[in-house]
Design a protein around this nucleic acid. Structure first.
Lengths: 94, 94
DNA sequence: ATAAAGTAGTTTATAAAATAAACCAAATTT
DNA sequence: AAATTTGGTTTATTTTATAAACTACTTTAT
């Protein structure tokens, strides 16, 4: 029986967001949108799920007068990502 | 913008089936069921999708008097898997 | 011989997920 | 000051995954 893949990470957009966040201190909504190519609605929903799972932390601020949603990965999120990659390897390396 | 992940392969059960089939000449329904732990209904549906995509070939035979569904990966399937793994790396290796 | 239980699946219904479309509030441009 | 753009959220729709119910047999027990 194969290792089970965390369904929260096994989603192209959420995985993309996590992947980006692992490489930076923090990233805002607009940047994530550009990098992933996702629609705003979709990104908003998926960010919410990752936050509720405790995989990312979201801070709502302003840049000048414009709203700005900052995201950063949490310790828990980084660990979950590690585990996910480990599980994936059992599928793609054999 | 990140590489896009073939949605046909980005499914835990279908990926599992492909992963198993890559390692063997062919495998029957019962074996795939045991290895993946999937329900028969779910496996049946996912095998169908992989077949319709041309990623696996399915041959219905009998073992003794019992029906036996044999699956094997196709050239196209193996290539698609390769590409999927390649795309995945852009998410998990950075 | 026949009823009960098991095997190997398929089909259909339901739940969950992804995605898009519509909307909102504030800022900027014309 | 109207129209447009920005940075989102909420709601609706489509797609996907999964499970439950069913079919067609076979094997076992009575």
């Amino acid at each position: 029986m194969l290792k089970t893949l965390d369904p929260l990470l096994h989603s192209e957009l959420r995985l993309g967001v996590m992947s980006i966040l692992l490489g930076v201190e923090e990233a805002d909504f607009v940047f994530l949108r550009q990098e992933t190519g996702a629609t705003a609605g979709n990104l908003s929903v998926q960010i919410d799920k990752l936050q509720k799972a405790g995989y990312i932390a979201v801070k709502k601020t302003f840049r000048g007068k414009m709203p700005c949603t900052l995201c950063r990965i949490t310790e828990q999120g980084a660990k979950a990502f590690e585990k996910y990659v480990e599980a994936l390897r059992s599928y793609i390396e054999r």
